[in-house]
């Protein structure tokens, strides 16, 4: 085969025919979901879709670039309240969404500055502090948070003769698809390589021409954009937001999703989102067990399967591919 052709082949999305078939089935299943699934399942799928966006964003930062951050809830809050205010001012949904992401990205760059000096646990603590500060700001400044009553957010208008819930599901499905594709593209480009290079050997990245400042801040900006959009989409689903929603547990939830789903994996991010939506749902009557399951999840992953749920799936696939030889 011609060399140039083989590069093209390498760079293609979903290279193996079987992957393309599975992907097509998955997309068809998701598009058809509202026809055969009850409404509460469609709602859960909507949540998984929006959480996937935030988890992918956090995975870009934590998993790919190796910058451990605990400021997730702050970016969710910034996204949600920006979105809420912009909607109240009359901006259409897409613009309000973009605004929410953009402001979160901007703040993300500011939060990224300590990452130029701090590493590992020190950075984690600094970002944790930032998260707590933002939480306090929203709790204490009623002009931002809408005070005791919070902010009410208008529902999406039903389109194409669908119900409101189904309209929302399709909009979110479209968005998560777009975010997933862009993420795949980014991580397989020079940007993704720079991120992973910084994580694996920052000094070597630098002497090979990767500008640490630029790429660390870019990682913070991009991940915060995703997380801001997640916050906005969450606000839209809830229809009403107050600062209490965006507490430390919400930061931990996204972190758990990244680690349990699979560090530095897009498929893992989606599985991780599924995990943190499914666990509280399955344990609806035992809420207090949820953090315990999360903690256990992280422990098990770190001990047995560092690549998370996605790593487990890869191994299973390998097992069946080589079957019956092992």
């Amino acid at each position: 085969m011609d060399l140039i052709e083989s590069y093209r082949e390498d760079l293609r999305f979903a290279r193996r025919p079987i992957a393309r078939v599975l992907l097509a089935l998955l997309v068809a299943g998701l598009v058809a979901l509202p026809w055969f699934a009850p409404d509460h399942l469609v709602f859960l799928a909507t949540l998984v879709a929006l959480y996937s966006i935030g988890v992918m964003g956090q995975n870009l930062l934590i998993g790919y670039t190796g910058q451990i951050s605990f400021a997730q809830a702050a970016f969710l809050a910034i996204g949600a309240f920006t979105f809420g205010h912009l909607r109240i001012w009359g901006l259409p949904f897409p613009l309000a969404l973009a605004g929410a992401g953009a402001l979160a990205a901007l703040v993300g760059v500011l939060v990224g500055f300590p990452s130029l000096r701090l590493k590992g646990p020190y950075l984690a603590i600094a970002t944790l502090g930032f998260g707590v500060a933002v939480y306090q700001v929203f709790v204490n400044f009623e002009a931002l948070s809408g005070g005791r009553t919070g902010l009410a957010i208008a529902k999406l208008k039903p389109m194409f003769g669908l119900s409101a819930a189904h309209t929302q599901y399709y909009v979110y499905l479209l968005l998560v698809t777009a975010f997933t594709l862009v993420t795949y593209n980014l991580v397989s480009s020079y940007v993704g390589r720079a991120f992973v290079a910084i994580r694996d050997a920052d000094l070597a990245a630098e002497v090979n021409g990767v500008n640490l400042t630029r790429y660390k801040l870019l990682a913070f900006a991009v991940s915060s954009f995703y997380t801001g959009v997640h916050g906005a989409l969450y606000a839209q689903v809830l229809g009403h937001i107050d600062p209490q929603i965006f507490n430390l547990l919400e930061s931990l939830t996204l972190f758990v999703a990244v680690v349990v789903g699979g560090i530095a994996s897009i498929e893992g991010s989606i599985l991780g989102a599924l995990f943190v939506i499914a666990v509280p749902k399955l344990l609806a009557d035992y809420r207090e067990l949820v953090p315990i399951i999360y903690g256990l999840g992280i422990l098990l992953v770190l001990m047995f399967e560092p690549l998370g749920l996605y790593g487990g799936w890869l191994k299973t696939r390998l097992y069946f591919r080589n079957w019956p030889f092992r």
Binding site: R8, L11, V182, Y184, N185, L186, S189, Y190, V191
Partner: peptide, 11 residues
């Protein structure tokens, strides 16, 4: 270009 998977340069 990276986000849109335009890969001439990459190749």
């Amino acid at each position: 270009a990276a986000a849109l998977r335009l890969r001439a340069e990459e190749i």
